[in-house]
Design a binder for these strands. Structure first.
Lengths: 174, 174
DNA sequence: GATTTTTTATAGTGACTGCTACAAAAAAAT
DNA sequence: ATTTTTTTGTAGCAGTCACTATAAAAAATC
């Protein structure tokens, strides 16, 4: 997970993954079936853990604006580089990958995440849920990309706060 | 340019680039020196043309908020997929690349673009130029990523309008 | 028209890619 | 303790990567 997250799907080889896991290629394929098979498991583990900032924000309770604001703040905390990994594995792990399978897996995970946000927003703003979800997703993708380009916690936190205010404004009025 | 833009730096081979240009490898290397050499020229040409949405918005005149709003609107028009290319070549062309040279070239182009936006904003809001530039850059990166994931002009346009309102709000007050 | 210079195509460099055949070693079952 | 099954390491599969040595063709010069 650390390797995929740090360098992206294509840039990490099976030999290196095996070396990190302490196994040789045949054991790797016996365990995971393929490189994409490990990536699928990696994405699942990633989305089931603390990296799922929306799920964590949701657990804190509150109305839609509160949860979304918390989601953005958590992303700003999580995304900056830590031990080489930066940004969101789901959003950027298979970006520019030449492997259609890896792209499809990441795409499915992204759709799942966006659907969760959209459905949650729909409870309070059913007719604007799609547009508001797009705002959140674009903000998260932008923050993930910025983190991968070196943005630190301070800068991302400021952006997250501005995005939070933007969301509240769009949510409440206009 | 089209190939790099559509699939990213690493996913395009020199052989394919040569085939598209109608030349064979030796001529390719005589002309560009290396794959990264062509990428550098590609980035320059890209940033010098209509893809530089900030330069185009700037040419239209107006105050900071007007120009930034126009920049975002132009990005929403340009980024959706056209003949396989989507998003911004500078922002996403070398994302997850394993080639340090390609990364450095794209990084330099990104820094240049951000500096132009930052300096322009600084004329009206010198003490908040960095934070506001981050907001714009994150919005652009997010829109580019969303476009690469299939977002169309309508969805990106809505996001651009919301980002524009967010920028005006942050610019003018509080 | 002969010679020199430039450009190009053929072919292949070593190093990598994801993945696997085979056989040796370890574990489990009889 | 012997046999069977599972797991593992060695080695290498065909393919692709960016890149280049060599030699033939084309262009330019004299």
């Amino acid at each position: 997970m650390r390797l995929f997250h740090a360098r992206g799907y294509d840039a990490v080889g099976v030999a290196e993954l095996g070396a990190e896991l302490g196994i040789k290629p045949p054991s790797f394929y016996a365990a995971f079936g393929s490189k994409a098979g490990l990536f699928e498991r990696t994405l699942r583990r990633y989305a089931a853990g603390e990296a799922n900032v929306f799920a964590r924000a949701l657990a804190g309770g509150g109305d839609v604006a509160t949860v979304i604001g918390r989601t953005l703040a958590l992303a700003a905390e999580l995304y900056p580089s830590q031990e080489g990994t930066a940004g969101c594995l789901v959003l950027d792990g298979a970006r520019n990958s030449a492997d259609p399978e890896a792209q499809a897996l990441a795409d499915a995970a992204k759709r799942e995440g966006r659907a969760a946000v959209r459905d949650f927003i729909a409870a309070e703003a059913p007719d604007r849920a799609d547009a508001l979800a797009d705002l959140v997703v674009v903000a998260m993708m932008g923050m993930s990309a910025a983190a991968r380009d070196g943005a630190d916690r301070e800068r991302l936190g400021r952006v997250a706060a501005m995005m939070d205010r933007a969301f509240r404004r769009e949510m409440s009025g206009a």
